[in-house]
Design a protein around this nucleic acid. Sequence first.
DNA 1: AAAAATGTTGACCGATCGTGCAGAAATCAT
DNA 2: ATGATTTCTGCACGATCGGTCAACATTTTT
Lengths: 210, 210
Amino acid sequence: MATKGIQSRNRQEITGRILTAAERVFAEFGYAGASISRIAAEAGIPKSNVVYYFETKELLYRRVVGEIFDIWRAAADSITVDNDPIRALGDYIDTKLDLARTRPFGSKVWANEIIQRAPIVQDYLEDELRSWTEDRIVVIEAWIERGKIRPISARHLLYAIWATTQHYADFTHQITTLNEGVELTNRQWEDTKNAVKDLLLSGVQIHGDG
Amino acid sequence: MATKGIQSRNRQEITGRILTAAERVFAEFGYAGASISRIAAEAGIPKSNVVYYFETKELLYRRVVGEIFDIWRAAADSITVDNDPIRALGDYIDTKLDLARTRPFGSKVWANEIIQRAPIVQDYLEDELRSWTEDRIVVIEAWIERGKIRPISARHLLYAIWATTQHYADFTHQITTLNEGVELTNRQWEDTKNAVKDLLLSGVQIHGDG
DNA sequence: AAAAATGTTGACCGATCGTGCAGAAATCAT
DNA sequence: ATGATTTCTGCACGATCGGTCAACATTTTT
């Protein structure tokens, strides 16, 4: 019992290393292009060992997708009826842009999966994403009814937020290339946050008369 | 000489069929996941014949990417200093959303390529896309200087337009799933155009005091 | 009509893929 | 200490991959 912990800790360490490697490799090569041997090499272990912990490529992949989905879901906690709309949406944009910077590979894996019509995680979309989305739409429409924001399309607002924030993760390479080949600095990421919020939330906010 | 045309016409027909099939297959499986045999099957010809016309998978892929890039470039013709900003940007958004509907596979191929850090078409980014982007930024900043639009970040405005419009192509499957599993109707696409323009151009337009 | 050029196809090659499996190694419970 | 359990790894398999090539069919040129 006293030594039981050692094995568990090792297990957690190694599965964590595999998941991190898998997220990167799946992002960089797509599901079909990612090979178990490449993931294993990135994690510094033999191929057979990856299979031992995750059984199949598909199960490993589902774990990777599930992780980023949970993280994104938590990012929208601020979107509730009682919160101030501009503040809540601004926080959501900030958080998602932080995630675009810190977890770009997860975002890319998700993008790849959706582009390829979700052959593996369609059940995620139909179960969890659908109800989650409807809940947020209800909140935004409640804000509209109470006259707190302009009567925009709640659904398309959500889509626009997803699109723009994830763009900075999925298209990092294009953005870097257009930034003279160097990654965005801290300052540029702050500028990005402000620019995205400015652009998107101007369409939401009720404009005063002066 | 009189019969020369027959072979040329056949050549054009068959390479066209291959390119259409390739665009779809590359979009659906990524570069690594797309196989020449699958493209050939989709085009209804033997694998060897695809190789005969395009030599390698990579050359075929470059042709596909080049096509969608040219189409997108032409879509921004309206962005010139002398045009009205809201009108010009609105036309650009409309055109790109039309392309999202009519050429979704090309958009997905591009997205896949950028996600994977442009292993094949990096020269496109550095040569053509970079100068093209800078030119548009100059136009938008000229609009700002002349007081025609709010002083937003021209670069991030472009990115936001790209992100939102391409989102409706790349994430079609997610959007369809969230639309109770059915594709968007003509009416819904019109609503989309208006919603995107409303959201993005509110941030651009100078708000009057009434 | 004969020669040349172009188009078409199936067979084949070496490489890599995901995965199953047997057995060695390490750790655990007793 | 010893047997049970878990962890680790090399090897082998059938399948599929991109690409080559030679044989054959068709069209074009002379």
